[in-house]
Structures are given as C-alpha cells and as structure tokens.
Amino acid sequence: HNLTITQGKLFFHYNPKLCLSEIHKMEEVSGTKGRQERNDIALKTNGDQASCENELLKFSYIRTSFDKILLRWEPYWPPDFRDLLGFMLFYKEAPYQNVTEFDGQDACGSNSWTVVDIDPPLRSNDPKSQNHPGWLMRGLKPWTQYAIFVKTLVTFSDERRTYGAKSDIIYVQTDATNPSVPLDPISVSNSSSQIILKWKPPSDPNGNITHYLVFWERQAEDSELFELDYCLKGLKLPSRTWSPPFESEDSQKHNQSEYEDSAGECCSCPKTDSQILKELEESSFRKTFEDYLHNVVFVPRKTSSGTGAEDPRPSRKRRSLGDVGNVTVAVPTVAAFPNTSSTSVPTSPEEHRPFEKVVNKESLVISGLRHFTGYRIELQACNQDTPEERCSVAAYVSARTMPEAKADDIVGPVTHEIFENNVVHLMWQEPKEPNGLIVLYEVSYRRYGDEELHLCVSRKHFALERGCRLRGLSPGNYSVRIRATSLAGNGSWTEPTYFYVTDYLDVPSNIA
C-alpha cells in the first residue's frame, strides 16, 4: 500500500525493539523526510534493546553428524571492536523451508527459537588472519532439518551509529543413524509349514526405512522333555500350542467401542483428552525405555581390526524358502538304536541362519518350516543398504507352526516275539517326523474274553527296548493296539495285532 503524509511529521519514542533503520525507511515511504526535528525521533529510546544489523554474515563451514552440527561463519568486528559482546545463534526444527525470524513471537518477546549466546573469538592483530567464530550444536535429532541463523550482539553506541551483522536463515539436516526397533511384532501360524509375521514401523526411523531383515531359527525343545518319565503317576503330560491366527481386521481397528449394538453396526467412541494424553505418555515412556535398553543392555560386537582377528559373527547367506525346513542338525536320541526319531534339535552355532529381506511392506510369510516346531524370529529395521547396512537392534518374537495331521501315527506293522515265561516283546517304529517329539506310547492289549488293559511306555523305555515287553501273560489269544502321544496330543491307534500265548508248562520236552 502507498502511504503519503502531505502535512505533519513523524514522532517515535520509547520503541526499544524498533531499529532506527526501520524508522528511516518509514520517513522515505511516507514522504516526511526532512520535516522531523532532532528530538522527534529519539536516538536513545528507539532500538536500544534490539540488534540492528546492516551487514550480512556468511557461514564459512558446515559439518553434520547424526546428532551434531558444527558451524563456522566469517569474522565480524565493528569499528570499535570492544562493542562486540558476542553472537546469538538461533535454531529450531523446520520440516519445511518457510521459516521466518519472527515465527511464534508474542507480545512478551518470546519466540519459538532456541538461542545460544556465543563469546567472540580472540581478536588477531592481523586483519587478514582473524579467527572464524563458530559453535557445535549438540543433542539434535537424527535425520531432522533445522533452520539456523546467527547475528551479532553489540553494545549501545553513544554516537548512535547503527552497526551489526546478521546471516540469512539456512537449512541444515542432520545425518541418518540406526533406527529404533520395529514396533509390535506379531507372529502367527496359518499352516503346519508357515508363519505369518506382521509389525509396525519404528517410532524413530532416523532416516528413510529402506528394508527390513527377518531372521528365523528353529528352537530346540526343553531338555526336561527328553529326561522326564511322563508315565509316572502324578506327572502331567506336557503340551505345546501353536500360535493362533490373526483376529479379523475389524476387531483390530483402534479407537473402536468394545460393545456392539445388537441391531447392527455401531460407531466408534472418540477417545477423551485424558485417554489420548495417557497414550502419549505411555508411548514416550516406551521410547525412553527402549533407548535405555539399547544403550545399557546391548553391547556392540567388536569388529575385526587390522591384526587379522576374525569377526566372530557368522556370515549372512541367503537361502531359498524351500530350504528352511531342514535348518537344524538332527541327532538321534540314543545312538545305539537307529530307529528312534531325530527330534532332539541342538543347533550348531556355526550354522548360517536363513533370512529374508523385506522391502516396502511390514509383513512376511515364512514358508518351508517344520510342522509343530518353535521358531525364534528376529526382526531388524534398516535405513541404508549400501555401502553397508545400517540397521536397528533386533526385536524378537516366537511362534510355533501348526501340527501336521497323521504325523504322530505309527507307520509300519507292530511285530512281536514270544519268549519263555510268557513274555512277549512288542516292537514298532517311532514316527519319523512327529509333531514336536514323542513323549510316550500307549499300549492297549486284551486277552479274548477279558477286559482291555493299558500300559504306558516312556520315551526312554522305548529307546532301550525298541518297544516294550509284556510279562506274566496268561495263555490265550491276544490283540494289541499302540498309539503315540506327542507334544500336540495323541496320534491314531494302530491296526490290531494278534498273537497267541501258550502255557509254557505244557511245552513238550526233548528229553527222552
């Protein structure tokens, strides 16, 4: 807008934040220059609390790290170098490059900038070799853009010569660093050979998330399962459950009422301010606690030095998902009996873990797994792929695949051998790939016309006998059925096997 004052003059007093240069501009645009008398524009009460600059400061050096910015700028000295009290560095987070010096300023003089007072450097006698002032900004957020400017702080001049310097606002972004852990990993099994893994992005990506790394490792069953005799009275049979499938998407929606109208769909109840505040506090606490764990609990591995020492970490090797089922080394339970199943799973520490690289999504279907087997899954978020990966501390989750139908069934015939004193040795093959492992066998036998009897055969007993022995049988026709019990439950009964026990007292003698 054009402003013209045809008559009258300007009068400025007691404006401590208004620089004289701005008042002189007002004289020019209003056409009143030359009308004012000496005392109409006070030299001592206008701009006496402001830094009124008329020179431009330029930054000469900028260096960044993930949490620091090192700045240096060209030296500046007023005509009387004693008038320079120091520099004021202003900075704040700036997602967009549209910041002005006066953003967030209120009537009390406060604003949204963080201000650092910096002492002037030592003055050199040689004007050509003056030290460049600077400042190291610490405690910054990774991968965050900051708006920065600097200006001088000078003393009051009796001659009211307006001098000083100020830089333009520059924008500097800190470097990326390792992201925080992925949030809320959930693993479920939808079949006997697959596990579905879902997660949420890290709360602090500290860069642009480029991919996720998912490692999985087959877990050995508890050692007590191999040692305890679950045929003993009072000892509860062990059981394991597989990871249940995901709930429906509708039930997972946030901010939804727990109660549904019987007449149909209901609208979600909005969260109160107290609920939102509580969630923010919980989120802040979780982030602080995660940072504490990362800094205190997890110790970084030592990389190899120039002395030739090897990095103890196993090298990563990509495998196809079809090879995942046989990740671990199978060892027989008892070496003397080769027909026992290889369900003991000690994992070799030198073995390469299978892994998958996930790009542009937060889910993965891990296939080719062994049925009813526990897996430990390790999830890392990465925001750099080359020249070397920059990934987060791992988040861990466990899951067990679903049982395989008929995996616990005894394959092959049940054979028998009759000894003296009416002892019958029953023999059968253990299931080759049971659900988890076989903890015991149930032997059901009966003599024709009598009630059915049951015998429990422990895992250890089966390994020693290759089956079991029935003792003290009365003469007669017998039928026997056997079924295995694994961590997933009972298998199917075998087809009945028949044998006849004679009275050993009636056996004919070869003595003449």
Results as ranks from 00 to 15, higher is better:
Pro205Met: 13
Asn206Leu: 14
Asn206Arg: 05
Gly207Thr: 05
Gly207Ile: 05
Gly207Ala: 02
Asn208Gly: 12
Asn208Cys: 11
Ile209Met: 13
Ile209Arg: 13
Ile209Gly: 12
His211Ser: 05
Tyr212Leu: 03
Leu213Gln: 13
Leu213Thr: 15
Trp216Glu: 01
Glu217Pro: 06
Gln219Ser: 04
Ala220Thr: 14
Ala220Arg: 07
Glu221Val: 03
Glu221Gly: 15
Glu221Thr: 05
Asp222Gln: 04
Ser223Tyr: 12
Ser223Arg: 07
Glu224Asn: 15
Glu224Ile: 03
Leu225Asp: 06
Phe226Pro: 10
Glu227Val: 12
Leu228Glu: 15
Leu228Gly: 12
Asp229Val: 06
Asp229Met: 12
Asp229Leu: 08
Tyr230Gln: 12
Leu232Val: 07
Leu232Ser: 09
Lys233Val: 15
Gly234Glu: 10
Lys236Trp: 10
Pro238Ile: 09
Pro238Leu: 08
Ser239Ile: 10
Thr241Met: 11
Pro244Gly: 11
Pro245Asp: 13
Glu247Arg: 12
Glu247Ala: 10
Glu247Asp: 08
Glu249Thr: 11
Asp250Gln: 09
Asp250His: 08
Asp250Ala: 09
Ser251Leu: 13
Ser251Asn: 09
Gln252Phe: 14
Gln252Ile: 10
Asn255Trp: 15
Asn255Asp: 10
Gln256Cys: 13
Gln256Arg: 06
Ser257Gln: 11
Glu258Ser: 11
Glu258Thr: 14
Tyr259Phe: 10
Tyr259Lys: 13
Glu260Thr: 08
Glu260Ser: 10
Ala263Ser: 11
Ala263Met: 11
Gly264Glu: 05
Cys266Trp: 11
Cys266Gln: 10
Ser268Ala: 15
Cys269Asn: 13
Cys269Gln: 04
Lys271Ile: 08
Lys271Phe: 12
Thr272Gln: 05
Thr272Leu: 10
Gln275Gly: 11
Ile276Gln: 15
Ile276Ser: 10
Glu279Arg: 11
Glu279Thr: 10
Leu280Val: 14
Glu281Gln: 13
Glu282Thr: 08
Phe285Thr: 04
Arg286Ile: 06
Arg286His: 06
Arg286Asp: 14
Arg286Met: 07
Lys287Glu: 15
Phe289Glu: 07
Phe289Arg: 09
Phe289Thr: 07
Asp291Gly: 15
Asp291Phe: 08
Asp291Val: 10
Tyr292Trp: 05
Tyr292Thr: 07
Asn295Gly: 10
Asn295Tyr: 14
Val296Arg: 08
Val296Thr: 10
Val297Asn: 06
Val297Lys: 13
Phe298Met: 14
Phe298Arg: 13
Val299Tyr: 13
Pro300Glu: 10
Pro300Arg: 11
Lys302Asn: 11
Lys302Leu: 10
Thr303Asn: 14
Gly306Ala: 09
Gly308Leu: 10
Ala309Met: 10
Glu310Ser: 12
Asp311His: 14
Asp311Met: 09
Pro312Met: 14
Arg313Ile: 07
Arg313Val: 13
Ser315Gly: 14
Ser315Ile: 12
Arg316Gly: 05
Lys317Leu: 11
Arg318Pro: 05
Ser320Arg: 14
Ser320Met: 05
Ser320Val: 11
Leu321Ser: 10
Gly322Tyr: 06
Asp323Trp: 12
Asn326Arg: 10
Val327Cys: 15
Val329Thr: 05
Ala330Leu: 02
Val331His: 15
Val331Trp: 14
Val331Arg: 09
Pro332Tyr: 03
Val334His: 09
Val334Glu: 04
Val334Arg: 12
Val334Pro: 12
Ala335Glu: 13
Phe337Ser: 08
Pro338Tyr: 09
Asn339Trp: 11
Asn339Glu: 13
Asn339Ser: 12
Asn339Met: 07
Thr340Phe: 13
Thr340Arg: 07
Ser341Pro: 08
Ser341Gln: 15
Ser341Asp: 05
Ser341Val: 11
Thr343Phe: 07
Ser344Cys: 07
Val345His: 08
Pro349Arg: 12
Glu350Trp: 04
Glu350Leu: 11
Glu351Phe: 09
Glu351Pro: 11
Arg353Val: 08
Arg353Phe: 03
Arg353His: 07
Phe355Thr: 08
Phe355Asp: 03
Phe355Arg: 06
Phe355Leu: 10
Glu356Cys: 11
Lys357Arg: 08
Lys357His: 03
Val359Thr: 11
Val359Pro: 08
Val359Gly: 12
Val359Ser: 08
Asn360Tyr: 05
Asn360Glu: 14
Asn360Pro: 08
Asn360Lys: 10
Lys361Ile: 08
Lys361Thr: 10
Lys361Tyr: 14
Ser363Cys: 12
Ser363Arg: 05
Ser363Glu: 14
Ser363Val: 15
Ile366Phe: 12
Ile366Asn: 00
Ile366Gly: 00
Ser367Arg: 08
Gly368Trp: 13
His371Lys: 03
His371Gln: 08
His371Asn: 03
His371Met: 01
His371Thr: 13
Phe372Tyr: 13
Phe372Asp: 04
Phe372Trp: 06
Thr373Pro: 00
Tyr375Met: 05
Arg376Ile: 13
Ile377Pro: 01
Leu379Phe: 10
Leu379Pro: 01
Cys382Arg: 00
Asn383Leu: 09
Asn383Cys: 10
Asp385His: 11
Asp385Val: 08
Thr386Leu: 15
Thr386Lys: 09
Thr386Tyr: 02
Glu388Arg: 09
Arg390Pro: 08
Arg390Lys: 15
Arg390Trp: 08
Cys391Ala: 02
Ala394Asn: 08
Ala395His: 13
Ala395Asn: 05
Tyr396Ser: 12
Tyr396Glu: 07
Val397Arg: 07
Ser398Thr: 12
Ser398Gly: 02
Ala399Cys: 08
Arg400Asn: 06
Glu404Trp: 04
Glu404Tyr: 06
Ala405Asp: 13
Asp408Trp: 01
Asp408Ile: 00
Val414Tyr: 01
Val414Asp: 00
Val414Thr: 03
Val414Lys: 01
Glu417Gln: 13
Ile418Phe: 11
Phe419Cys: 15
Glu420Lys: 10
Glu420Gly: 04
Glu420Gln: 08
Asn421Trp: 08
Asn421Tyr: 08
Asn422Gly: 05
Val423Pro: 02
Val424Lys: 01
Met427Tyr: 00
Glu430Phe: 07
Pro431Met: 02
Pro431Leu: 03
Lys432Met: 05
Lys432Asp: 11
Lys432Gln: 11
Lys432Pro: 13
Glu433Gln: 07
Asn435Ser: 03
Asn435Glu: 01
Gly436Ala: 12
Leu437Cys: 06
Ile438Gln: 02
Val439Lys: 14
Tyr445Ile: 02
Tyr445Asn: 02
Tyr445Val: 05
Arg447Asn: 04
Tyr448Pro: 13
Tyr448His: 09
Leu453Ser: 06
His454Tyr: 15
Leu455Asp: 01
Val457Arg: 06
Val457Phe: 06
Ser458Ile: 05
Ser458Phe: 05
Ser458Asn: 06
Arg459Phe: 07
Lys460Asp: 05
His461Ser: 11
Phe462Ala: 05
Phe462Glu: 02
Ala463Pro: 04
Leu464Ser: 10
Arg466Ser: 13
Arg466Trp: 04
Gly467Pro: 01
Gly467Ser: 01
Gly467Trp: 01
Arg469Trp: 08
Arg469Pro: 03
Leu470Pro: 01
Arg471Tyr: 15
Pro475Cys: 06
Pro475Met: 07
Pro475Tyr: 07
Asn477Ile: 04
Asn477Ala: 06
Ser479Gly: 02
Val480Cys: 15
Arg481Thr: 11
Arg481Ala: 12
Ile482Leu: 08
Ile482Gly: 00
Arg483Glu: 01
Arg483Lys: 13
Ala484Asn: 00
Thr485Val: 04
Ser486Thr: 12
Ser486Val: 01
Leu487Pro: 06
Ala488Tyr: 14
Gly491Gln: 15
Trp493Val: 03
Glu495Lys: 09
Pro496Cys: 15
Thr497Asn: 06
Thr497Ala: 09
Thr497Pro: 00
Tyr498Ile: 14
Phe499Ile: 15
Phe499Lys: 01
Tyr500Pro: 03
Val501Leu: 07
Val501Arg: 02
Tyr504Pro: 09
Leu505Met: 05
Leu505Gly: 13
Asp506Trp: 10
Asp506Phe: 11
Val507Ile: 11
Asn510Ser: 06
Asn510Ala: 15
